[in-house]
């Protein structure tokens, strides 16, 4: 599904991604782990095209999308949920979802408001509330639901558990597993190893803009050395 090869990205002159490479098979959930500032968000932004990669290939379902504009990448089936909750504060829940709406793809049933409200029951109770008058957790749900309205094949989730109460984190984990059941491929950036272990099949560890380790979650669990070297908490 996704094959990233030697990806380089800059902020101005700062060289942040320094040749990141990894692969993500269709239908799996992969977690991108790394310390603060390791380059997880930058990887996500480079994939969706908000940060334009300077070099490297991003093979998405057989096409190289590196250098495309974000809206084209999104239409090709990449869904991006940013780290900071960027709901449209003036728009209602329904309107926020409307912005994300794209046609169905691959013959799979399209996400509708009703299906999303079944997945995130909280949202269904506040359809006409403005995005700016929702709690952090509700906003996080809304950003995910909004992205799903685009019927993505691959979902990029940047730290969905950040700052959420444990109950909500649990709900979030349930939602991600439900998505996996639907056949959506997920790339997750996380610092919360516990949450990652709950939902992910495999992991990639990023350090200073390079992927330094990849493997299954079970392998990561067994590899004490990697965890202390790169993820020490």
């Amino acid at each position: 599904m996704l094959n990233v090869d030697d990806l380089h990205s800059y902020y101005g002159r700062a060289h942040i991604l320094q040749g990141a490479s990894f692969a993500l098979p269709a239908g799996e959930v992969m977690v991108l782990l790394g310390r603060n500032g390791a380059g997880k968000s930058t990887t996500m932004k480079s994939l969706i095209g908000i940060v334009r990669p300077a070099r490297g290939r991003i093979d998405f379902a057989g096409v190289d999308i590196a250098g495309w504009e974000p809206h084209r990448i999104a239409r090709a089936g990449l869904g991006y949920v940013p780290e900071e909750r960027r709901v449209f504060t003036d728009l209602t829940v329904l309107e926020n979802l409307e912005v994300g709406r794209q046609p169905a793809r691959d013959g799979r049933p399209a996400w509708t408001e009703e299906r999303l409200f079944a997945l995130f029951p909280n949202l269904g109770r506040m359809r006409t509330r403005a995005g700016g008058r929702m709690s952090g957790g509700e906003q996080q749900m809304l950003t995910i639901a909004r992205t799903l309205m685009g019927n993505p094949r691959l979902l990029l989730l940047d730290e969905p558990s950040e700052g959420l109460a444990p109950v909500i984190v649990e709900e979030m984990a349930g939602a991600i597993l439900a998505l996996k059941q639907e056949g959506v491929t997920v790339l997750l950036a996380e610092q919360n190893l516990h949450f990652a272990a709950r939902v992910a099949d495999r992991a990639a560890v990023i350090e200073k803009g390079r992927i330094v380790w990849t493997g299954t979650m079970a392998a990561l669990h067994a590899d004490e050395a990697v965890r202390t070297a790169y993820l020490a908490v």
Binding site: I48, G49, I50, E69, P70, H71, A74, R75, Y80, P82, R86, F88, T89, D90, L91, E95, N96, V99, G100, Q102, R146, T147, G150
Partner: peptide, 14 residues
């Protein structure tokens, strides 16, 4: 109205 607030996010939504 969405673009008035956050163009980048609107683009990222296709």
């Amino acid at each position: 109205r969405a673009a008035t607030q956050d163009r980048e996010m609107v683009a990222a939504l296709g």
